[in-house]
Design a protein around this nucleic acid. Structure first.
Lengths: 167, 167
DNA sequence: AAGAAAATGAAATTCATTTTCAAAATGTTA
DNA sequence: TAACATTTTGAAAATGAATTTCATTTTCTT
């Protein structure tokens, strides 16, 4: 069983708060449209989540929020993340450690991941050439692709000097 | 949450029994080398597993074996699959339905998967051009790749006529 | 303000996976 | 081959993330 030794996540370029508030508006619209209700909790959770620059689990987000606010339960964080995913503001992903992680949608249309087996760091990348070849494979098999998943597991620049010799 | 409506698996070209017995010998060697013991159960489970032409779960293999042999427990099937994986005779994989599946190692060095969202069918493919591009991406990020995962989810030839219009 | 509907959160449930433990089987040694 | 140390077995229990339940609280109409 694969297991990460840590959870440190690589940084991404600046996230501006204007963008966050735009997304929060989009969430509010979605909530209204669906006949749901806006709540203090959802607002706090969404704000905290949208500030996120990494792939976070419900547990991690819950802990982060608990530090400031003892009155928000795990279940609500969990449900709000699901809601964010349904509204299209978050993406749900499962990597090799089998935990469900959420990530705010980015400007990139679709991206894949490089995952460090030592530090757990996740780096995103995009490669149109690969995407095109994937589609070509699908067509060859008479397959209609809806989505795909591509993850490269290994050791990042910082960790590779400590990579186990035998693998 | 993604869910398969069925479990039908596409066929692969013939598996010859000579190959199976060669693999069984390899398992026996591994067992001996590690100081483990050969047992009737392990033999039955390995034989049944190596005949497998698809990606099977411990549960599925257990049920298949139970039909003929009521005296083999789920735990033993589970443990033998893990053992097969450790011995290098099986590959452990988790797809989007979050079940752990095992597949006998094939002649192909590495392969990726097309997974039908309607019937659950899994088709294997190999594409060296994609592999090379993946490696190029890794190098660009100073990343040392150990392994990778690539899955295309969609509708197979047979199921695509029934694919939901909206996705 | 009152009522209908939805949200909350603690606790319970689910379900695949993994571990425990006492009994049985294996294989090595004398 | 008998004894013994070790491993294996399998039923049952434990684990742990994900999900649901349900009584209570909150929100959003009129």
């Amino acid at each position: 069983m694969l297991q990460f030794k840590g959870r440190k996540i690589l940084k991404k370029k600046g996230v501006d708060s204007l963008q966050v508030s735009g997304k929060k508006e989009r969430l509010r619209d979605f909530i209204k449209k669906m006949g749901f209700k806006s709540t203090r909790q959802r607002d706090i959770i969404a704000t905290e989540f949208l500030k996120t620059i990494c792939h976070i689990t419900a547990e991690e987000l819950y802990k982060k929020i608990s530090r400031m606010n003892k009155e928000i339960g795990f279940t609500t964080v969990y449900r709000t993340l699901k809601l964010l995913a349904k509204s299209g503001l978050a993406t749900e992903r499962v990597f090799a450690d089998n935990l469900t992680r959420y990530e705010p949608i980015s400007t990139k249309e679709h991206h894949d991941h490089l995952i460090c087996l030592a530090c757990g760091g996740i780096t995103e990348f995009e490669d149109t050439k690969i995407e095109k070849l994937q589609e070509a494979v699908a067509v060859e098999f008479g397959f209609m692709t809806i989505t795909h998943k591509m993850e490269l597991y290994g050791y990042c620049r910082k960790c590779k000097k400590h990579a186990p010799a035998s693998e």
